[in-house]
Design a protein around this nucleic acid. Structure first.
Lengths: 207, 207
DNA sequence: AGTTTTTTGTACCGTATCGCATAAAAATAG
DNA sequence: CTATTTTTATGCGATACGGTACAAAAAACT
């Protein structure tokens, strides 16, 4: 029942791949400065097809923001799973984020920073929906880091202290995204990130 | 010789006040999403007058970015001069920045964050001039904080350690700007800022 | 008063924008 | 083979955009 052959003319494009192409355009130019013609050119589709598949420009953008947050979540999660201990794991995660921000990964070969921080932020004041989306991305980041610290420290840190450290690290991460977009090198950013982790996360017995 | 009466028809507007009005528009909407019609409406001028006085839209924006950086510099400098000691001064500065970011000052009654971080950043990838301007703003921030720390610690910190701490604080500040634009309250941000200073700046004998 | 200089206001130009209407194309269902 | 469904492609349509031409207006200079 799931591979029911569809009735009409088949699509010429792969939806997933197309969304990735759209993401690149928004990531580079932001929301306001991106035109549907640019997206059409990047995807090889024409505007009516885009509209039929993904809705309005705003719909597309919000879809892309979610998609980016998901990608980021899994990507950073995988990076943090490559070692153990609070500080090592956090350092791995920050380093992976910096690689992404500076265009060292296959997800994005250009130094565009974090899509949400770089582009969604600008629109957040004009449009409540955008602001909520930004807030959601930030909250997700906070929670992700907090749960990692909570898991690794196993009650040796108080919950409020822990959440605060997580927010500090998220602040750092967002600052690093900005510098990546400003053209700073991954090496400099990684050095900053490492020392930031050392300062922000208290040294426990096992680390 | 300085108050030479000018030859032609006198201007109906005050240039300084007009630039402030233009700044508000760019601060709220960013560069791409701001139209000259919006600026014309906000200032009460028409487009030809705007163009004659301030040049193209891009010229205006770059002028405004510089203006904002200058304002920020004097505003934060004054805030940091209201007390003594590294940490107290830094905390005053961060608190003042948060007030500005969240719209608690007369400079801006709306929670728009930092103009450069909030709006310039998005354009930084497309246009090299914008990227350089962003880089300049960041570098200026780094140097400002570093010189404050240097002055207050009087050689008790190494120069590289000092610069690193300054960059950490700048990262934090930029992260706070983002959260301000996302709608976070000044109280929460100030609590975060205070603890961040405590963690990032080493506790010396006199503080 | 008449000339010159500068600013203002209206109106325009070419282009770009988003979204959609409409018809051709490509598949399945009967 | 015909009807139906879905996607593609062309193209329109109304609006918005940045920038400027041009003439009227308002001041000083002669």
């Amino acid at each position: 029942m799931k591979t029911e052959t569809k009735r009409g003319r088949p699509r010429k494009f792969d939806e997933d791949k197309t969304l990735d192409q759209i993401m690149q355009v928004f990531w580079k130019n932001g929301y306001a400065a991106t035109s549907l013609d640019q997206i059409a050119e990047a995807t090889g589709l024409n505007r009516p097809s885009l509209y039929a598949a993904f809705g309005s420009k705003k719909d597309m953008y919000l879809t892309i923001v979610d998609r980016f947050a998901d990608r980021m979540h899994t990507y950073l999660g995988a990076a943090g799973a490559r070692t153990t201990g609070v500080k090592p794991r956090l350092k791995f995660i920050l380093a992976a984020a910096i690689d992404l921000y500076t265009g060292q990964t296959e997800l994005n070969g250009e130094p565009y920073g974090c899509l949400a921080i770089s582009t969604l932020q600008t629109e957040a004041v004009q449009d409540a929906e955008f602001r909520e989306a930004l807030d959601a991305v930030i909250a997700r980041m906070d929670k992700g880091i907090a749960s990692l610290i909570r898991h690794e420290t196993q009650g040796s840190m108080g919950e409020t202290e822990l959440k605060e450290a997580a927010q500090h690290l998220a602040l750092i991460l967002h600052g690093l995204s900005i510098r990546a977009r400003a053209g700073e090198s991954p090496e400099v950013l990684k050095a900053l990130a490492e020392s930031a982790v050392d300062k922000i996360v208290p040294t426990t017995s096992e680390s």
